[in-house]
Simulated assay, not measured.
Amino acid sequence: MAAPVVEASRAVLPEALKPGPPRQKSQAMESVEDILYGSIAGIIGKYIEYPFDTVKVRLQSQPDHLPLRYTGPLDCFRQSLKQDGFSGLYRGISAPLVGAALETSSLFFFERLGRETVYKSGLCAKDQALPLPALWFTGAFSGAFTSFVLTPIELVKCKIQVPATASSDGMVHKAPSVPSVIRDVYKHEGVIGFWHGQMGTFLREAGGCAAWFGFKETTTKLFYVWNERGIHTQAEKDALRTEALPLWQQAVAGASAGMSYNFLFFPADTIKSRMQTTAVGGTAKKNTFFQEGAALWHQHGLRGMYRGCGITVLRSAPSSAFIFMIYDGLKRHLPL
C-alpha cells in the first residue's frame, strides 16, 4: 500500500519542485571521465598485479634450447626474491604504470565509442540498454583499437622484466632501464620495432576484452535478476536497476571478467611475450607471430602455451575487481 501513497504525494508537488530528467553529459565530458577515471583505476590495478605479471613474463620467456629455469610460479617467486629482492618484482613499473593508465582509459573510451557505433547503426534505440551480444561486440571493438596503444608499452615492459643473465664472457650485465630499452629498439629497428608482437596483442585484446566487458556485464545482469527476487512491480525493478550493486557483487563481476580475459586468450599473450623478449639487434631473424607459435607448440605443446597462466588468472581477479569498482564508483559519485 506504500507505493500509491508515494505516487499521490508526487502528483500534488508544484511543477517547479518536480524532479527533472537526468542531466545529459556531452561527449567531451564523457571522454574526459573515461580518460581520467580509467587512468586512476588502471594505475591502482597495476600496483596490485605487477609482481605477478613479472613472474608470468619470466615463466613465458624461458628459452626453448635450455632447461627450464623455473619449475613453476612459486619457484619463480622464490628465485626472483633471492636474486633481486622484493623491489625486483617491481622492476620497470614506471612504463607499465603509464601503460595501465593508457590501457584502462583507452578500453573504457573505445568501449563507449563502440556503444555509440551500435546506436548509430540503428540496431538498438538510443534510449534502450544494449543487449548482451552487443556488449560483447563493444568489448572486442575496444580491445582491437587499444592493442595499438599497448604494444609499444608492453614491449618495453617485457624486455625489462626478464632477469639479467650471464653473457658468454661470464659477466652479468645490469638490467636495462626504460630509456635504454627505448633507445636500443629505436636504434636497431626504428619506430616500427616498437610494434613487434602486435598480432599477439591484437588477438589477446580483441578477444580478451570481448570477454572482459562481456562477462562483467553478463554477471552484473545475473546479479540484478537475482536481487529482484520477491519484487513484483516493474517500477520497483526499474528503481533497483538504477542503484549500484552491493560491493561484493561488483567485486565478483569484475573478478569474473578478469579471469575470463586472461584464460581464454592466454596463448596469444605467451607468444607475444616470447617475441618481445628476444634480444634487440643482432643478425638473428625475428619470428612472426605464427612462426613463434609453431615453434612453441612443437617444443612444449599446449602446456607451453599456458605456462604462467595460473598465476596470471589468480592476480587478475583482485586487479580487475578493483578496476571496475573504482571506475564505476568514480563515474557514479564524482561525475564531471
Score class of each variant (00 low, 15 high):
141 F>K: 05
17 L>H: 04
78 R>V: 11
230 G>C: 13
138 T>H: 03
149 V>R: 00
333 H>E: 13
202 F>A: 04
34 D>S: 14
335 P>Y: 04
201 T>W: 05
324 F>D: 06
133 P>W: 05
112 R>E: 04
46 K>A: 04
23 R>S: 12
11 A>F: 06
95 A>W: 00
73 P>K: 03
85 G>I: 01
228 E>V: 13
56 K>P: 02
88 G>H: 07
262 N>R: 13
129 A>H: 07
306 Y>F: 14
84 D>Y: 15
296 L>C: 04
334 L>A: 06
169 D>E: 11
4 P>H: 07
206 A>T: 13
145 F>L: 14
301 G>E: 09
188 H>E: 14
179 P>M: 13
93 I>M: 00
307 R>D: 09
16 A>W: 10
242 T>P: 03
176 P>M: 13
63 P>H: 01
262 N>W: 11
154 E>G: 08
180 S>C: 12
185 V>S: 04
163 P>V: 12
212 W>I: 09
239 A>N: 11
97 L>A: 04
236 E>N: 14
244 A>D: 12
28 A>D: 03
252 V>F: 07
85 G>S: 10
186 Y>R: 12
137 F>N: 04
148 F>E: 03
309 C>Q: 08
183 R>I: 09
35 I>R: 02
47 Y>R: 01
173 H>F: 11
204 R>D: 08
292 E>Q: 15
234 Q>M: 12
202 F>W: 04
242 T>H: 14
23 R>I: 14
307 R>A: 02
269 D>G: 10
203 L>A: 07
301 G>C: 12
323 I>H: 01
204 R>K: 08
272 K>S: 14
243 E>L: 15
311 I>T: 02
308 G>S: 05
289 F>Y: 15
47 Y>I: 13
14 P>T: 05
162 V>A: 13
6 V>I: 11
145 F>E: 00
68 L>S: 07
332 R>H: 09
50 Y>C: 00
84 D>N: 12
75 D>A: 09
85 G>M: 05
320 S>T: 08
131 P>E: 04
198 Q>M: 11
260 S>Y: 03
296 L>M: 09
319 S>V: 00
114 G>M: 15
247 L>G: 02
110 F>M: 13
282 G>D: 10
132 L>S: 04
268 A>C: 13
148 F>A: 07
233 T>K: 14
3 A>D: 07
181 V>Y: 03
90 Y>H: 01
242 T>Q: 15
179 P>G: 07
93 I>C: 00
85 G>L: 02
258 G>W: 00
265 F>A: 10
265 F>H: 02
258 G>E: 06
224 Y>P: 08
237 K>F: 09
266 F>T: 01
164 A>V: 08
59 L>G: 01
170 G>F: 00
255 A>V: 05
82 K>R: 15
146 T>P: 01
230 G>D: 11
325 M>L: 09
98 V>S: 00
204 R>W: 07
8 A>T: 02
24 Q>T: 12
142 S>K: 08
119 Y>G: 05
149 V>T: 00
103 E>S: 08
201 T>E: 13
119 Y>N: 07
160 I>R: 01
70 Y>V: 11
284 A>I: 14
26 S>K: 11
226 W>S: 14
28 A>W: 06
43 I>R: 00
266 F>M: 01
210 A>V: 02
283 T>G: 12
214 G>Q: 06
257 A>N: 02
287 N>W: 06
129 A>E: 14
197 G>R: 02
